[in-house]
């Protein structure tokens, strides 16, 4: 099963992706977490540690610097450049912008390309996309089984979420909106109004433990697995785990 996570910058995509990956791994599934953001931070939310995350070699840059002989299969990239994260999650960074004039990011190994090529083959792949709607637009039709769109109750985030929901309809069978940082009924109402009534929605309450995890550079599921926000994301993981082919 292939799951992609999208939304405006700063809405909590990476926290949702990292927590989902960890929780899915705990259900017994083999999980590959693909960081498809050219500003890759998924390692932080998986619990790899901030400085370690910053040092991870991305597939594209690894190939460019000739760190290894060219391994032509996508599975080979994952094997060569992946690293283990807690709970047995395998983490792969697709591409990182780390220098001036990095060359066309769509040519060669691109985050979307890797995401499109990887076969789930019994495992669960979670792709944490780059901020904005461009990445959703570039997904091939039918490539993802589930598109998770993270939104928070701000006009800017909802502008992105509304459009991402429209586009996701062509890309996957199931779209789930994660209503993040919800404090009250009125927060929920603005999100519901923006994305429409047809969308499945998972509510993640505003959560001090998640805020603390962001500040400390740790995985939210390690900071407090029982906090309301983490529990809501784990609930979504359980639902997705039940949809996937049993491990």
């Amino acid at each position: 099963m292939k799951i992609v996570v999208a939304g405006k910058g700063g809405v909590g995509k990476t926290t949702v992706s990292g927590t989902l990956a960890r929780a899915l791994a705990r259900t017994g599934h083999e999980v590959l977490a693909l960081d498809a953001d050219t500003n890759p931070m998924l390692g932080v939310s998986l619990g790899v540690g901030p400085e370690q995350t910053d040092l991870l070699v991305a597939v594209r840059q690894g190939l460019e610097t000739g760190e290894t002989e060219h391994e032509r299969s996508t599975e080979g990239f994952v094997e060569r450049f992946g690293r283990d994260a807690p709970d047995g999650v395998r983490l792969v960074v697709a591409s990182r912008i780390e220098q001036a004039n990095p060359g066309c990011m769509c040519c060669g190994v691109s985050p979307e390309g890797l995401l499109n090529e990887l076969e789930s083959d019994g495992k669960i792949i979670i792709g944490d996309l780059e901020a904005g709607i461009g990445t959703v637009l570039r997904l091939q039709e039918g490539q993802a089984d589930v598109v998770v769109i993270v939104a928070q109750p701000t006009a800017k985030s909802l502008n992105v979420a509304r459009r991402a929901v429209e586009m996701a309809a062509d890309k996957s069978a199931l779209t789930i909106v994660v209503a993040n940082r919800v404090r009250d009924e009125s927060d929920l109402a603005v999100i519901r109004e923006a994305v429409g009534d047809d969308c499945e929605m998972v509510i993640v309450p505003d959560d001090a433990a998640i805020a603390r995890a962001d500040r400390e550079g740790r995985a939210a599921i390690d900071v407090d697995p029982d906090s309301p926000g983490v529990r809501a994301i784990v609930g979504l993981a359980d639902r997705l785990a039940a949809m996937a082919v049993p491990a």
């Binding site: 932080v44 901030p50 910053d54 912008i97 220098q99 962001d214 550079g217």
Partner: peptide, 14 residues
């Protein structure tokens, strides 16, 4: 937050 600090460090470097 760490994500924000790491991002800023990279942008500044570039």
């Amino acid at each position: 937050t760490w994500q924000s600090m790491l991002t800023a460090r990279r942008i500044a470097r570039i």
